[in-house]
Design a protein around this nucleic acid. Structure first.
Lengths: 405, 405
DNA sequence: AAGAGTTGTCGGCCTTTCCGACAAATAGC
DNA sequence: GCTATTTGTCGGAAAGGCCGACAACTCTT
């Protein structure tokens, strides 16, 4: 039953399992690859040797997506993706292939999730189905009947079918899985805290995906992953095609759509700015985090983790303290406690006619420090990146002008 | 779980499921196809219309096996085969393809069977494993342990894997399947009397096949099968390639290796001759039936069911009362009660130079009747068949010579 | 803050599964 | 035909699964 090969997953099912917040670049699209993000994704505490190698590399590498595999782990059922990236040599005349929009329009997938309780995982072999899920995903039950029941065939990410009995019982009445539930818990090694995602496509076929709480990663495995990352980085630096693996549950993607990065870099991010970040929860509801930029802290002008944000909400993962501009949004609605930042985007664009194969970095060593920035222990730097032939400047004299007000 | 398509089965596993007595002709080999046998295989009581059509056809048709599919029924797990036969046009110069001997030598399959009891099928969800089977097929258990147990992964004919707990318990101690056995009974719809065949190949992988007691064939299904047979017969008669389906449990094969038929036809079969027939039982043991030829009763010189045999053993299927010569062996060792027939093969062979597309039948209308034959109410006929350009004569004047003694 | 709706956990009961006892059937001498 | 071994069936025991009761939690207003 347990296949040893990773399973190819239907794109819409894969997306629902990963969560709608997870963005996988499209085939043949332009992206930026962030080596530091890649390393931190494999190992949050990388060894110094790896870090120094990363520091000697370009901080971001423009690439084209040459292949996308949407996969599922045969052991854990968790979804992940394997991408083949081909570095773009600046000024090269290779015409990019057409980006195929894979939204087929007609077929859709609706999903509903639940983090399973201790009782779901251990007790009596029954699963308490959230009423939202039952209403949205499963065929309607005869709720007036004495013992409403139906047999559901639910397909996992490997294409294996599980037959559950779905009943509506108890007082107050609720939806439950009874028959075959404990076998499912047993085979999938589910524990309290793991999440299930139930999905239904336009043909009515029902699917189930799993997100695990515990990330059991042995030190040896992490070491191995780190070595694989470093091999990829070396290939990227040589402008050769390289393969990366991205697990949506292990932090943000380090391969980001070019336009998204470029647009985000055009904003004059500065200390004290109010920002937000919308997150999808396990049950596919949306929650919004609000925060304030506390520092522009990119060493060597690395956009990955350039902005340090202090989030208002307590439960925030460590790796979201330092974010890239594309990972957050400027918060228009939230009133700033100290200052009002104008939503106007002040962008400095300079046409570049130099055909160089490397990304040009121009560091402005003359920092201008405003009173506000000083008061917030925040260094404002003028930083200019060249992105696909366009020079972008971040951390401008906006502060000064505002401070003068 | 339940596939709707027939499964392709590994040849050695298929053979063990069918039983070693079942002979499937090799790809590209010469065979004789018996239309009457085909019809009786589909329906033991065929309608008169079908029978009259069969009678207007050749009684046997030489063919080449153009394809062999070894299959398993997705509903019942029973094995069967689908053959594509291409009629051989006598004298045609088409060079036959090489017959590939598919015996790979190295890999073998051992098997052990059991007809399951009422208790196996209904009670308490346990299966009493025959000790022979446990010793031959399963990995050795620590028989000295207090509760010897192991988990066995057993593959069915569709490639689905079943996990059973195999224990050695009770007083007296015996091998049993406990965990998952009742699910297997349930899913496979097993009833007392059905047989299981456990197999192990040279890599140690364990398989299970099923033979059912009840042949539930609705009248409509039988009608359909009869029509399919008649279509095949019509194609065969036109010397066009045709497909046949053979179920090993439903009687002897009507597609028989040419050499086997020819050799059997060379023997002067006669009334009173002692014959034997070895049969493989469910548990893969061998039992031998003994009998006496009571009649040479082929109407229109049809070798299928030409010999009428009275078997000594009681439990004989009806369809084995009338057999073809290739289905039995001359019994050298069994002492004849009345007469001693010499084991010498008296064969009359005549070279045939006529290039005819049809099989020549020469009926000798002058019957000679001996005293012995008269006393046994047995008609001795001289019958000549042309097989692949060789004329074979059966039921000779041996009787007379013996009777004169 | 209160009410309605939802869902986590528990104990009881019923079914299924697992076990050795015993006896019946079979194989071996 | 006798004995040794194997295996079919049974009743009791243990485990697993299904149920409503009740309470805690969440969401809405």
């Amino acid at each position: 039953m347990a296949l040893l090969q990773p399973s190819l997953v239907d794109p819409k099912i894969w997306q629902s399992c990963a969560g709608d917040a997870v963005k996988i670049p499209k085939l043949h699209s332009k992206v930026y690859y962030f080596p530091l993000g890649h390393l931190e994704h494999a190992n949050p505490n990388p060894n110094t040797e790896s870090l120094s190698l990363i520091n000697s590399c370009r901080p971001f590498i423009p690439c084209i997506i040459s292949s996308v595999d949407l996969l599922a782990d045969p052991q854990t059922d968790e979804v992940y993706t394997k991408l083949l990236l081909t570095p773009v040599i600046d000024g090269s005349s290779v015409e990019p292939l057409e980006v195929h929009d894979d939204d087929d329009g007609d077929d859709y997938v609706v999903s509903s999730g639940k983090t399973i309780s201790q009782s779901d995982a251990n007790n009596g072999g029954a699963f308490s189905v959230p009423s939202k899920c039952a209403k949205l995903i499963f065929p309607p039950l005869e709720l007036e009947a004495k013992l409403p029941a139906q047999e559901l065939s639910i397909t996992d990410v490997h294409g294996n079918v599980w037959e559950f009995r779905h009943v509506y019982r108890g007082n107050p009445k609720r939806h439950m899985f009874t028959h075959n539930w404990s076998q499912f818990v047993d085979k999938k090694k589910l524990v309290g805290g793991d999440s299930l995602i139930f999905m239904k496509n336009s043909t009515g076929k029902i699917y189930v995906g799993i997100r695990r709480v515990k990330k059991i990663a042995a030190a040896a495995v992490v070491q191995k992953k780190e070595l694989v990352v470093m091999e990829a980085v070396k290939l990227a630096e040589k402008n050769e095609a390289f393969e990366v693996v991205y697990h949506p549950t292990a932090g943000d993607n380090f391969v980001v759509d070019a336009k998204v990065v470029e647009d985000a870099m055009k904003i004059n991010w500065n200390c004290g700015m109010r920002v937000k970040r919308s997150l999808k929860n396990d049950d596919s509801s949306i929650s919004v985090q609000h925060g304030t930029i506390t520092n522009l802290c990119a060493p060597s002008n690395r956009p990955w983790g350039m902005l340090q944000v202090k989030w208002n909400e307590a439960k925030v993962l460590e790796n979201t303290l330092q974010v890239g501009p594309w990972q957050i949004e400027y918060s228009f609605d939230a009133p700033s406690l100290h200052l009002q930042y104008p939503p106007t985007k002040r962008v400095k664009v300079a046409e570049d006619y130099t055909l160089s194969n490397d990304i040009q970095e121009v560091r402005h060593n003359s920092f201008s420090t405003s009173k506000f920035v000083e008061a917030n222990n925040c260094n404002t730097r003028k930083v200019t990146f060249k992105l696909f032939g366009t020079i972008i400047q971040v951390g401008s004299d906006v502060d000064d002008s505002l401070a003068k007000k």
